[in-house]
């Protein structure tokens, strides 16, 4: 147990290092999520709105689930070499499937009656998307974002083997930081993942329209992707 005490001591003594690596970690994760959202949300939402491409959209999550993050980052390294941008690319690949699939399913499964009613009221497709489908789909759509975020925060740890910085630089450097440092970094990464999950869970509940507000505190999305 003294290792854990040592790890806490490490966090206090080396707080500048820990904070800096945590910041790098969040920056990398945030950038990856930003890109993944910009790609996956529009594609998933449009496909869901048109009820097209269900095969691709749904199977993407299955493929994503089977992709070993280590292999993705390894391949990124092999093809693109060392550095922040390459790790970013690998993380985006890992983050897109759960977001896209959830966005698709969320929009696709909005009750057709609600859409029909909106159409009957004379709403344009764009209005239907903005005022009916998106609000109703938000909880499930957000569940995918939440899963992907936790997944990215976890996988960003692997970034260190590819020179992407972050807490992995402590976690994979036993020679410099010893077991205390490794356990300390593991604790911080875990806290980050749990924190991001809780934060987004809270946001998810707040964003949901009142009728759809039974989001459980802990519930993964339909894709079941998991942190590395």
């Amino acid at each position: 147990m003294s290792t854990f005490a040592g790890a806490l001591e490490f966090i206090v003594d080396r707080h500048e290092l820990v904070l800096q690596k945590t910041w790098e970690h969040l920056l990398l994760s945030g950038a990856a999520m930003g890109l993944a959202l910009a790609i996956a949300i529009p594609v998933g939402v449009v496909l869901g709105h048109l009820h097209r491409g269900s095969f691709v959209a749904i199977n993407l999550a299955n493929v994503g689930r089977a992709l070993p993050s280590l292999a993705v980052i390894g391949l990124g390294l092999a093809f693109l070499g060392f550095g922040f941008v390459n790790v970013l690319f690998a993380l985006v690949i890992l983050a897109v499937p759960p977001i896209l699939t959830n966005a698709y399913v969320a929009i696709d499964e909005v009750e057709p009656e609600a859409v029909e009613a909106a159409r009957g009221m004379g709403m344009t497709p764009w209005q239907i998307l903005r005022r009916i489908e998106l609000p109703l789909a938000l909880p499930l759509l957000f569940a995918g974002v939440r899963t992907a975020s936790v997944y990215v925060v976890a996988s960003a740890t692997l970034a260190a083997i590819a020179g992407g910085g972050g807490l992995g630089e402590i976690l994979f450097n036993q020679a410099s930081y010893r077991e205390e440092g490794l356990v300390a970094a593991a604790m911080v990464v875990s806290a980050l993942a749990l924190g991001v999950d809780a934060l987004l869970g809270g946001l998810q509940r707040r964003l949901s329209p009142r009728g759809a507000r039974d989001v459980p505190a802990f519930e993964p999305d339909v894709t079941g992707a998991r942190p590395a």
């Binding site: 936790v150 925060v153 976890a154 996988s155 740890t157 692997l158 992995g168 976690l171 490794l182 356990v183 970094a185 593991a186 604790m187 990464v189 875990s190 993942a193 749990l194 999950d197 942190p227 590395a228």
Partner: peptide, 9 residues
């Protein structure tokens, strides 16, 4: 939710 690598450690 805890990342695997962290959990190992």
């Amino acid at each position: 939710t805890i990342p695997a690598i962290a959990l190992f450690q």
